[in-house]
């Protein structure tokens, strides 16, 4: 019970951090990373929900199956997003280093 809750809260923390970075950062690569962190948080919450201590009854395999497919789908989404980001960089007149100056976090200065 307490284990599930701790892992769920950890997943929630990851999700919130990813969500904030997704909104606050303007660089495409950071957005992609933020979405990945968010997805990891969701997976952690799902797995934590399914966790049962030994002998506490049948495990719930449905979240496991969802995470299993979700990981592979998130990898492919990341790959497609990276290719799209590269295309944006190739075709746009503004270079990515210019965009970084507008980044909320100010890491590009």
């Amino acid at each position: 019970m307490i284990t599930n809750m701790l892992y769920s809260l950890g997943g929630l923390l990851l999700f919130i951090m990813g969500l904030f970075a997704l909104i606050a950062c303007s660089h495409p690569l950071r957005k992609i990373l933020a979405v990945n962190v968010m997805a990891t948080g969701v997976f952690l919450i799902l797995i934590a929900t399914a966790y049962k201590q030994a002998g506490a009854g049948e495990i719930d395999p449905v979240p496991h199956a969802m995470v299993l497919t979700g990981i592979v789908v998130s990898v492919s989404v990341t790959a497609l997003a990276l290719i799209l980001a590269c295309r944006v960089q190739e075709t746009s007149n503004r270079s990515l280093s210019q965009q970084r100056k507008n980044d909320f976090t100010g890491a590009g200065e």
Partner: peptide, 19 residues
């Protein structure tokens, strides 16, 4: 979301018994 997590019932078997 913290409230949602605190309110979740982790002791129920979910769909495990049905599976």
């Amino acid at each position: 979301l913290v409230q949602v997590i605190l309110a979740t019932d982790y002791l129920g078997s979910g769909l495990g018994d049905d599976v």
